[in-house]
């Protein structure tokens, strides 16, 4: 059991192959359902390119799987703030995703100045910042400033929400 798991862990890149297969099947099935009997102009209809792309996705998935099984490994991206010697910190990633989705869920309800501040504070908290006075102040300041600059100066509307109706 553990042998299978560690075998899979070693070759987790096969997940990318699975993703490519799924995409390929999706593109192909979608392409085959496009009706071509009407509205087609020229010899090549709207189906041709999706069928080509879908097939290539399947081919590349197979080639990539072969590469992985033969010991090929995609090189994880390094970076100035990236420490690849440590294992991935999934807690941080999940918290970050939560902060991002909270903004998406709340922006229509409470408006950008509040949801944006929650996003910033939440993300900073997820990434390890624990200044419980400074963080929310920076978040609120940044969020309100961005709202005013975009909404009032640059002419890019953002939802103000109930907070901004007071003014």
């Amino acid at each position: 059991m553990t042998a299978t798991r560690s075998w899979l862990r070693e070759r987790s890149e096969l997940g990318i192959c699975a993703l490519l297969v799924a995409l390929g099947v999706l593109v192909l099935t979608d392409a085959l359902r496009i009706p071509t009997d009407f509205a087609q102009r020229g010899p090549v209809g709207p189906k041709a390119v999706p069928i080509l792309v879908g097939s290539l996705l399947l081919v590349v998935a197979v080639l990539l799987a072969r590469d992985v099984l033969r010991g090929g490994r995609g090189e994880a991206e390094g970076g100035e703030d990236v420490d690849l010697t440590e294992p991935a910190d999934w807690r941080t990633v999940l918290l970050l995703c939560g902060a991002f989705l909270a903004n998406a869920a709340l922006i229509g309800v409470v408006g950008f100045p509040i949801s944006g501040a929650i996003l910033f504070w939440g993300a900073a908290y997820a990434l390890g910042s624990r200044a419980f006075v400074r963080d929310p102040l920076i978040a609120a300041g940044l969020s309100i400033l961005t709202f005013v600059v975009f909404n009032n100066l640059l002419g890019v509307p953002l939802p103000g929400g109930p907070l901004m109706e007071v003014f």
């Binding site: 703030d81 970050l96 902060a99 991002f100 903004n103 998406a104 922006i107 950008f112 944006g116 996003l119 910033f120 504070w121 993300a123 900073a124 908290y125 997820a126 990434l127 390890g128 910042s129 920076i138 940044l142 969020s143 961005t146 975009f150 890019v156 509307p157 953002l158």
Partner: peptide
Amino acid sequence: RPYLYAGILFFASVGAYA
């Protein structure tokens, strides 16, 4: 760094929403 990457996500959201 927490502020840097929080800021990146923040402005990415502004951009995509706008």
